[in-house]
Design a protein around this nucleic acid. Structure first.
Lengths: 157, 157
DNA sequence: GTGCATGCAAACGCTTTGCAGTCTG
DNA sequence: CAGACTGCAAAGCGTTTGCATGCAC
């Protein structure tokens, strides 16, 4: 049960029950695909994947389901500079930030306690109490398979 | 000439000349207001300020002028989580990040070499060469005049 | 059966652009 | 006076919502 996907399913099931939400064919499918895909997808990318398995599902359902997952704490909304929202699996309790390759579009995750500590110190200096933060590092991937990945993930820019 | 506004005016004048751009009543007004206001304004906030002095100026002109300033390296586009673009005066050569108070909407700027250094190290670990980054710290302002500031800056949320 | 969920299409909010008329250099 | 600039209005684009219908419980 150290699988984050299993944990997510449990949390979601609990949330659904608590709130009197219903399980439907569409929701199940969307959740499955979101969990399998493993993150950083836009609504349209999700929709496309969903429709490969069931083309009767509409955009609004994917949209509302992802909002639901976000509310349940199972998904997190990410907004990079692209003008679209991406969704990733929320890792329980732990926070992480992102590195984005501007060539291939690949997104990496990182976590750094030192940065978090410095952050708190900086905020204090301005008289703020930190509630959340966003830290994105943009760069160029030096891996040789960069171009290949770009094609695979189909990210713009 | 350590005044960043003067520096900005010079840089802009140079850019205009190089590119064969023209000086107009509207552009002069928008630039004046942008430089005086001192940052972090949305297009609509700018438009409102501009129209207080000349209500014949349209939104598109403010929009295009700010794009021009961004292109000239005089303004920088900021996108926080609000769905609107804000513009701030670009400080020549130096980079800084932002602290945003979620209560009063006030925006502070900070700079931290240690974070930048850690960032480079993290990126290296993933095989990326950093081109730029974004670091936003959201928090709650503990200042007593927080609510007052909120009214003054008229930020949402 | 009740009322939550779906799918469509329309509304939104912000940004971007085409075009006819205006003004700078 | 050529062509860059303006203002308007319309188009784009991603997101959000109203509503009639469908379906889970």
């Amino acid at each position: 049960m150290s699988d984050p996907r299993q944990a997510a399913r449990h949390r979601l099931a609990q949330f659904m029950e608590d709130k009197g939400k219903r399980n439907t064919r569409q929701r199940d499918l969307i959740v499955d695909i979101f969990l399998e895909a493993g993150g950083h997808l836009t609504l349209n990318e999700l929709l496309r994947l969903v429709q490969e398995r069931d083309d009767r599902v509409g955009f609004a359902t994917v949209y509302r389901t992802m909002k639901l997952l976000a509310e349940a704490g199972v998904a997190e909304e990410l907004r990079f500079g692209e003008g679209q929202t991406r969704y990733e699996l929320a890792h329980a309790d732990e926070h992480h930030d992102h590195l984005i390759c501007q060539t291939c579009g690949k997104i990496f995750e990182f976590e750094d306690d030192e940065v978090e500590a410095i952050q708190d110190r900086i905020a204090l200096r301005f008289g703020l109490k930190v509630t959340e933060h966003r830290h994105e590092i943009y760069g160029v991937c030096t891996k040789t398979d960069c171009e290949h990945l770009r094609a695979a993930t189909e990210l713009p820019q």
